Simulated assay, not measured.
Amino acid sequence: MDRNADATRRRLLDAATFEFAARGIAGARVDRIAAAAKSNKAQIYHYFGSKDALFDAAFSDMATGTVNEVPMDASNLPEYAGRLFDSYERRPWVQRLVTWYLLERGDAAAEPMAGIVQSNRDKVAAISDAQHRGLVTDAFSAPELLGLVLHLSLMWAMSLPEYLVVLGPVDVEQKRQLVVDGVTRLVR
């Protein structure tokens, strides 16, 4: 692919990411995506084939970017959870895109994204190794522990407004510290 094609594809992915995060697959419009990318609808179909395939590409791009931006150190899961929290704070649209993925794709996705599945398998293997070396708790299986760490890092993004009202004001540093402290206690 030449540079112009790469640049066009990137602009379409970026525009689609924000459109899908805001409106989901059903509410997104390819004409808005094309306009935001300074392209046209024909380019969307040329590069991606369909609106659903464009969503899958945008979701995969976001997930791969997160995996690459926030590598996991199984011997320091609290800091990993904190860096995931930081990543979600910098990119609040990630949680919205994940929510739409779960709502509109979830189990109906054509097939799990192989790269993300492999990344999770690698993380589970690293956690299992850290458990065998006594660096983290074995009170949970490695897959369970990974799930708990991932979900704690998303805690604030997925909190109900009614809970946040009861909790009261919490600044970003306090939110991050709670995630790190929670995972610290979890892995002992």
Rank of each mutant, 00 (worst) to 15 (best):
M1E: 02
M1A: 03
R3V: 14
A5P: 10
T8D: 12
L13V: 15
D14E: 15
A15H: 13
A16I: 03
E19W: 08
A21G: 10
A21R: 01
A22C: 08
R23A: 14
I25A: 08
A26E: 13
A28W: 09
A28F: 11
A35Y: 07
A36S: 15
A37S: 09
A37V: 10
A37W: 04
N40K: 07
K41P: 06
A42K: 07
H46I: 04
Y47N: 09
F48V: 11
S50Q: 09
K51V: 10
D52A: 12
D52P: 06
L54P: 09
D56R: 10
A58Q: 09
M62V: 12
A63R: 01
T64G: 02
T66E: 13
V67R: 05
V67L: 06
N68Y: 07
D73R: 07
S75V: 01
N76E: 04
L77S: 06
Y80M: 00
A81E: 00
G82R: 04
G82C: 05
R83P: 07
R83E: 11
S87G: 11
E89I: 12
R91S: 03
W93F: 14
V94A: 09
V94P: 01
Q95S: 15
R96S: 13
L97E: 06
W100D: 01
Y101S: 03
Y101Q: 00
L103W: 00
L103P: 00
A108F: 05
A108K: 02
E111V: 13
G115C: 06
G115V: 07
V117R: 06
N120S: 05
K123E: 11
A125W: 06
A126P: 02
S128W: 08
S128I: 05
H132W: 04
H132K: 15
R133E: 10
R133H: 11
L135Q: 15
L135R: 12
V136Q: 05
D138K: 04
D138L: 01
A139Y: 00
S141F: 08
S141R: 06
L146P: 03
V149P: 03
L154V: 07
L154W: 09
L154N: 12
L154R: 15
A157Y: 08
P161S: 11
E162I: 08
Y163L: 09
V166S: 13
G168M: 13
P169Y: 14
V170H: 09
V170M: 13
Q174W: 05
Q174Y: 03
D181Y: 00
G182Q: 03
L186C: 10
